[in-house]
Design a protein around this nucleic acid. Structure first.
Lengths: 377, 377
DNA sequence: CTCAATAATTTCCTTCGTCAAGTATTGATT
DNA sequence: AATCAATACTTGACGAAGGAAATTATTGAG
């Protein structure tokens, strides 16, 4: 938690979180928003200002008849503290330094020769040093590191239970990374990290429920329901890639047939098109109807998967993103049409954002998790 | 809330809820369970005992070496207060009187000639009078009535926004029913009510996440995630019936094709078998292969739908039930096989209970909602 | 008959947030 | 200019809720 305080009062955490995610906001507005008295907000804000995490902005002009004392909105001092986020993939580490508002201030990456744990942890230590000692002098104001890893991750203990891409099993990553970097480390599943970033700093701000769908080699989904991340009682959740699409469809690596991922995953597209992914994209854009149909069918499958999310949990909005959507122009109309057809009743009104995702976003997600750890620990 | 107290302290509500759902339990065990000091539990329990909602059971013998003072477990006094639950369908009202532990004490029903609101409310008033003045003399100790209605229901205002079966739109049912009965009324969607009942008093006890799937004319699903009911931001949630199963399957009334409900709903089975539902069941049981295949395919579709729930939200357990499962012997093996095939990774370990559901259960669900309203209001 | 072990209660205290009153600052009205 | 209404924020007294530690209660084992 915050440096001076052992355990903050609930109201302090609530106030800080609200200012962080809902931008400059006056104490009175906070009180309404959080269902607290304005006195409580004043008291909660004071230590945060004293610690330098919040600041009071200049009074703004007021409108309307009668007027009154202008509000002095509270804002986060973004440069009070910095956070490192690193996304660990099978062949690369992508790292960023973010400020308190999760804006990326610096970035760096390292190719990995192998996914051996000792080697990766060593590389991670060096990457962190590069970031902290590079321009900007972040070292003095950086205490935390967030790591995003695909697979089954126990966030509370920092244990990577199983990561298929890295071929890791039961790796105590938090412990290892803390030893290697001297920072306080938080580990989270990559999709969940990205979802949290979107909930706090992206399109999910203010939504009680929210879904983020990532399209790439695999197709995943992060879910926020009733304001909280859905974790799944066995570590499994958001596996939209294995929602059924076509009982008679192609075999999926999971053992079933016609899963969304077996039709719309990068590998499936490569297989069906008979071309490398980039070539398939080019062919479809050039008007090749056969390859175009492959993307159309993939988009259709994604739409059905998204509709399953909308029908089952009814999120306030859905963001569809991921590397696989670099060619999102080929997918988008089919995703939308398929979603509209399959979504039931008012679920069809759920706004869909479909957009590609800069790869750095994954690392920013990791940084967000460490910001969250500061606030909510 | 409780009669004497305006607003109970959080701990009081927590203690009562825990004793209600986790049966007789000692104060020390409650303190561990709720992460409170034992002093706090003692203080919270006192007013509940004074009001007659809880009682102290005789001390139980202790085991193990050393021993110590035996615990005096707290238990709910089930007959302290009674609750009426009524399920409203298009052609019938089914009512029950339940005690505080949601045990059914009396039941009654009324056939409805039409679904006209005025008429239904009048009938409801008479049904409630029948229940309260029948044997048992419940009137003096009954203050609350819960109503379960299919469709889009705003639980917080008691407004029925839209119920297709009843053909109701924007009916202020709580207000109407309170006037007609003189009781405090709570209105909830029928599947959500049943899910709450299962969470508090059935197989969902103690689970942080939980799903109830109902199979019948429609196929629905209630979800508990992170201990809370999933409502859906547009009132739509748990629409497992419109998860995709077969892109090339039969047209569904929702406008799409091959939805789970379009394959496994009662109507679909009747259509495919070319027989009335009961006759189809009899034929399948008698070994008619063609009709048996219809049930097999229906079970397969239900399994895919359930797998979607398991893959997306990862509930701790799933109960499959509903009138449509009167013939659950015909469905069960296909549901299980299909679920196993489609569930991803550890999601396949999710325990499935498949069992028919006495129709009275729906009314009991309604009563549970009014019990919950007492506790959590 | 004492002791260790466990359960429940009591007393005292801290903490947190509300309430009500007061201060601050504005534009509009006399 | 002085006043007023409106709104934002602060202050200090108070009360409710839960914790810590000591106390009482009740058991089985030696």
């Amino acid at each position: 938690m915050f440096p001076d305080a052992e355990a903050m009062a609930p109201a302090v955490t609530a106030v800080f979180t609200a200012v962080l995610t809902e931008g400059p906001i006056s104490r009175v507005a906070l009180a309404r928003r959080l269902d607290l008295s304005s006195a409580a907000v004043t008291k909660a804000a004071r230590p945060l200002i004293e610690m330098g995490y919040l600041e009071e902005l200049a009074a703004t002009e007021r409108t309307g008849p009668g007027a009154g004392r202008p509000a002095s909105p509270l804002a986060v001092r973004a440069d009070r503290e910095f956070f490192i986020g690193v996304k660990i993939t099978g062949d690369e580490l992508i790292g960023v330094v973010c400020d308190l508002r999760a804006e990326v201030r610096a970035a760096a990456h390292r190719r990995l020769a192998v996914a051996d744990v000792d080697y990766v942890v060593t590389q991670l230590g060096e990457l962190v040093d590069d970031l902290l000692d590079g321009p900007g002098d972040y070292r003095a104001r950086t205490r935390r590191l967030g790591l995003a890893v695909s697979g089954d991750v126990d966030h509370s203990t920092g244990l990577v239970r199983y990561s298929p891409f890295l071929r890791w099993r039961d790796v105590p990553l938090r412990e290892r990374a803390e030893k290697a970097t001297g920072l306080t480390v938080t580990v989270e599943n990559d999709v969940k990290a990205l979802t949290t970033a979107e909930q706090w700093f992206g399109e999910g701000v203010g939504a009680e429920s929210f879904a983020l769908v990532t399209v790439g080699a695999g197709i995943g989904c992060g879910l926020i329901v009733n304001g909280r991340l859905v974790s799944g009682s066995r570590g499994v959740a958001g596996e939209i890639g294995h929602v059924g699409f076509d009982v008679n469809g192609p075999a999926c690596h999971c053992g079933s047939r016609g899963c969304v991922e077996a039709v719309a995953g990068t590998d499936a597209i490569v297989r069906e098109a008979g071309l490398r992914f980039d070539d398939a994209v080019a062919a479809a854009r050039a008007g090749d109807e056969r390859v175009g149909a492959v993307f159309a069918r993939a988009g259709e499958a994604i739409g059905v998967g998204i509709a399953a999310v909308a029908n089952l949990v009814g999120p306030a909005r859905i963001v569809v993103s991921g590397e696989g959507l670099a060619a999102y122009d080929l997918f988008e109309p089919h995703i939308r049409a398929s979603f509209q057809r399959q979504a039931f009743g008012a679920a069809a009104d759920c706004p869909l954002s479909i957009r590609p995702l800069p790869f750095e976003e994954w690392a920013r997600g990791a940084a967000t998790v460490s910001i969250k750890a500061l606030v909510a620990a």
